[in-house]
Design a protein around this nucleic acid. Structure first.
Lengths: 133, 133
DNA sequence: CGGCATCCTAATGGATACTG
DNA sequence: CAGTATCCATTAGGATGCCG
């Protein structure tokens, strides 16, 4: 199984503009990280640049509680923990694919609408003295 | 066009447990409210029991900005405003349908996993002196 | 390595009251 | 009717530091 690509999730990708979300902020990305097999805690952290261990732990614990992943801790030193998608967790992949399909087809239109809206505001700056804030 | 059913969104429905969300808390419900035609502000408020005008306005403004709805204000007194889905907004319906299909097929398993987890915690109360907090 | 404890900030959402 | 204005509670998420 290949290593996870650190560039797997482009921070410049306007996914923050998506009008939908899988679980909390990181759940969808975790599912994709585990798509091709079990991964260690630190391994998952790589593509999720900047996520703190606390937040990743929260995410994984919630996913474990909901039966989306299974957590396996090996009694070694240093410790080793692996996470793996359950069948239920894998079922989210179809939903993620649906979201990706929507994005391919419609996200450009949404972003264009948003820009039109911003430009419309710029054309009446005199009405809003705080516009340059 | 029939009136919106005030019971359209059952508050007892465990949709809060869904591992995905359309837009912010209310966006998905607004889309469904507008599915069969244009609606007035107050009309939309009915099935969204408890939503304050401020929050609904925020939601609708964001949807308008993203090109999901169009807002039409009639210069009457008392004022009348109608909201209608755009083609882009209607495209979200397919996504909502995908989410519903997932829920039908997998949400019971998620809820069961969650309950198992809670019961597992109850079986080791002695290990947590704060358990009854 | 894989966490947990503590503290902190920003943003979301809500309550209430008022207005053109 | 369809909002706006103000204030407030909650929460998600993050920064930092320590530990087995």
């Amino acid at each position: 199984m290949a290593e996870l690509d650190p560039e797997m999730f482009d921070p410049m990708c306007p996914s923050g503009a998506l009008p939908f979300q899988i679980g909390d902020k990181w759940t969808g990305m975790v599912v994709l990280c585990l798509e091709h097999g079990r991964r260690r805690f630190t391994e998952i952290r790589v593509p999720l640049r900047g996520v703190t261990p606390k937040v990743l732990t929260q995410t994984l614990r919630a996913m474990e509680r909901d039966g989306l992943v299974v957590r396996t801790a090996y009694p070694e030193n240093p410790p080793r923990v692996e996470y793996e998608l359950t069948a239920l967790g894998r079922s989210l992949l179809t939903l993620i694919e649906a979201a990706r399909a929507w994005s391919r087809d419609h996200l450009p239109a949404l972003l264009a609408a948003r820009q039109r809206h911003e430009r419309a505001l710029d054309t009446v700056p005199v009405s809003d003295p705080q516009a340059s804030r």
